[in-house]
Amino acid sequence: MRIVFMGTPAFAVPTLDMLAQRHDVALVVTQPDRVSGRGGHSRYSAVKKRALELGLPVLQPARLDDDAVSDIRDASPEAICVAAFGMLLPPTVLSVPPHGCLNVHASLLPAYRGAAPIQRAILSGDRETGVSIMLMEEGLDTGPYALQRTLPIEDLYADEVELRLAGLGADALAEVLAGLPDSVTWTPQDAGEATYAAKITKDDVALDPELHVDEAFRRVRAATRRAPARACLGDREVTVKRATPVEADVAPGGLCLADGYPVLGFSGGALRLDVLRPAGKGDMSGRDWARGARLAADVCWRCTR
């Protein structure tokens, strides 16, 4: 099948790989390069990097205007496949392919429509999440779905869930494409059951001694590079990257060492900081950080807000 693929971050790369192996990818559409770092260097999206490695043509519109729509139409796709593209598709794009625009969405729709379904599922304490292959409409993730695959969340972190869902989504999309147009049934979403997954903010994942330890652990696991889980240990601000709930005789707001690792007290328990990132530095083990920090015996910790 002739395909136009639209995607941007690493989550979309397994889907692109699958399409390149099984179909004719006429065009890859991704977000424009971003400027990053102190040197102001341009950074490719993960999808652009992989598309160039595969020798596929790449289009990077700042918006889906008439010129971009014309380029997509000229590619003559039978279907447009989308995975975390980052822009809403206007009707002029949705109407191009005869088999429609199929989206790999990282939730079990109608739950968690929107930008941060993985993080919101973790923060809510859900036991499972999944992917949905959805036929796109003008609304935000409102279209009917053809196939869903589930994944237990357990104690996984957001990046681990994303990696697993990326593979599940690619496989599910392959199955749906193989059934088009006659062997696919589209199930309408129940709008009354819909929830919205807004982008994660720093406040959503901020660590506070008054939190229950279970909530604090979910915040660490749901944190992202742009919305990190931070705390002040004494007078030192750190980002908590990996942690483990432990039993420790430490009150909320208290800080102690266990096997050399810093342990933060919360309501109902404590978190051992396995991996953290000090301000202006890279990731390191909690033990290495504590060795260098030489914390006072009576030191406490607090929220950064």
Score class of each variant (00 low, 15 high):
W186F: 14
A197I: 12
A296F: 02
T239H: 11
R63T: 10
T187P: 02
E53K: 13
I153F: 01
P110L: 08
T30L: 01
T15R: 01
D182A: 14
D141P: 06
D65F: 08
T150M: 01
A197Y: 15
R272T: 05
L102C: 03
A279E: 15
A68P: 06
C81G: 00
V184A: 03
R287N: 08
V29P: 13
S124C: 07
L135N: 04
G86R: 06
G37K: 06
D274Y: 08
D67K: 05
D66I: 05
G143P: 04
L177Q: 01
G7W: 11
V240Q: 07
E175L: 02
Y44R: 15
Q31W: 05
A62M: 03
I3Y: 06
L123H: 04
L264P: 10
A270E: 11
D288M: 10
I133H: 00
G39I: 12
D203P: 01
R43E: 15
H99G: 01
R305P: 05
E215H: 12
W289N: 11
D171P: 00
G286V: 07
L19Y: 02
T142L: 06
V250W: 09
P90W: 09
E247G: 13
G265S: 12
G254R: 10
D159I: 04
Y157N: 02
L88F: 14
I3P: 04
Q148K: 09
A178G: 08
G40N: 10
A270D: 09
M18G: 10
V104T: 13
T8E: 06
M284K: 11
D17K: 08
T244W: 03
V82G: 01
D203M: 05
D141E: 05
D159E: 14
D298A: 15
E215N: 09
G260H: 14
A12H: 07
D126G: 00
D203T: 12
T224N: 04
L94N: 10
L123A: 06
D298S: 15
L151Q: 02
V4M: 03
A279N: 06
R34D: 04
V47Q: 11
A79L: 01
L276R: 11
A172G: 03
V13T: 09
V246W: 05
G282H: 08
H41Q: 15
T239R: 14
T15W: 00
D66T: 13
L233W: 12
L108A: 05
A115W: 11
M6C: 15
A158S: 13
A62W: 04
P97M: 00
V176G: 00
T224K: 13
D204N: 14
A258Y: 08
E210S: 15
E53S: 14
G139N: 05
R291V: 04
R50K: 13
A222H: 09
L52S: 04
V93E: 05
K48I: 04
V13K: 06
T224A: 07
V47N: 09
L88I: 15
L207I: 04
T201Y: 09
A197C: 12
P110D: 05
A83L: 04
